[in-house]
Computed example of a mutant assay.
Amino acid sequence: MIQVELKRIKTEAVTAVGMGTWGIGGKESPDYSRDRESVEALRYGLELGINLIDTAEFYGAGHSEELVGEAIKGFDREELFIVSKVWPTNFGYEKAKKAARASAKRLGTYIDLYLLHWPVDDFGRIGETLHALEELVDEGLIRYIGVSNFDLELLKRSQEAMRKYEIVANEVKYSLRDRWPETSGLLDYMKRENIALIAYTPLEKGSLARNPCLAEIGRKYGKSAAQVALNYLIREENVIAIPKAGSRIHLEENAGAMGWRLKVEDVEKVRGCV
């Protein structure tokens, strides 16, 4: 597996493709009839060696975190990397701490990386939240702090607001079809700062997996269109892609996006496919 180091995390690495859990845990099945299927999919991904799981308190009103907690039972916790997020309604010093503790309880474990899920207009609330998370690092409830959906200016302001620790990741929408992190300068800045970019919706809800141009390029490597689309993202050493943890077949395909690299001459061809 290709692994990447997060900023100033010197002793560990995470796989360049992780497992996203948006839509897992009640949203698509209010009667929870698909819970067992979701847990088994996550466990299969872990068995394949994918060690990062991304979740949030907002997903399934916390139920997704509960399913992640169930899925990781029996695995070596120190080999896993769990990401969760605090929703803007829980921003603020005391509310963020309470939310993090609730997430950790649902997960049944500490949180490796805790993110501010979405920005708000009041930067004071963002700053308060970041400072609360710094104290939670000291308490051992979370290990690292990050943000999500922050543009370049807001990322820089957040970095400046930190008192003791640093921003190690920014989770944003990024795919071959939606390359705004490249065009906005965000990706280049994060590379210089050695901040991990966690790319959600990397396959554009499956549409890139059905792209015939990507499939044609993939044949050169013995790979699928989806694997080409994911490899395009993770060819950057600081990028982690988190496609949804769906079926066993999709998880196998996602894992197969790692361990090889698009040739330079094919990168522009890939961009031209969308």
Rank of each mutant, 00 (worst) to 15 (best):
R177V: 15
L6Y: 04
G62C: 12
E265I: 08
K191L: 13
G140R: 06
K191C: 08
E79N: 14
P202L: 09
S224N: 08
F81E: 04
K269A: 13
D122M: 11
K191E: 15
M258H: 03
N231G: 03
V172K: 00
W260K: 04
G26T: 03
K85V: 11
K98G: 04
D122K: 12
V267P: 00
G25L: 10
A99T: 09
K223C: 06
L155F: 05
A56P: 03
E57M: 12
V147P: 00
A257K: 01
E216R: 15
A199L: 09
L197E: 03
N51W: 09
L115D: 03
E268A: 15
T183C: 02
V228T: 10
V274P: 03
Y200C: 07
N149Y: 02
P243W: 03
R101Y: 13
N194Q: 14
N231S: 04
R235Y: 07
T89S: 15
Q159T: 10
R210G: 06
G25F: 02
D76C: 12
G256C: 00
A102V: 10
E182C: 07
K27C: 11
P181M: 05
E236K: 14
A241V: 08
E236G: 05
F91E: 04
A41P: 02
L48R: 12
W180M: 07
H63T: 07
V264M: 14
D122T: 13
L141V: 15
L214P: 00
W118A: 08
S64M: 00
G18L: 05
G108C: 08
R210F: 06
R210C: 06
Q3N: 14
A102I: 11
S64K: 02
E40I: 06
L48D: 08
S158P: 00
A16W: 01
G74N: 12
Y32R: 15
R77E: 04
Y200L: 06
I9L: 14
L130C: 11
F58N: 07
L186E: 01
A215I: 06
V137S: 06
A241Q: 06
K223M: 05
Y174H: 10
V14K: 04
L115F: 06
Q227F: 00
K244V: 05
I24P: 00
E28G: 14
Y32L: 14
K7G: 13
D121T: 11
S224L: 07
L6A: 06
G259W: 05
H117E: 09
S158L: 05
E237Y: 07
S158Q: 00
K98R: 14
Q3A: 15
E237G: 09
D178R: 12
R125H: 11
H117M: 08
R157A: 13
K220H: 11
L214Q: 04
L154V: 08
W180L: 10
G23A: 13
K85M: 12
A61I: 13
E57F: 10
A104I: 03
T21L: 03
Q159V: 13
K164F: 09
R8F: 13
L67V: 08
L130V: 09
R235D: 05
A199F: 08
R36D: 15
I195Y: 01
N194H: 14
S148E: 05
V39R: 00
A241N: 02
D188H: 12
E37M: 09
A132H: 02
K173S: 14
R271A: 10
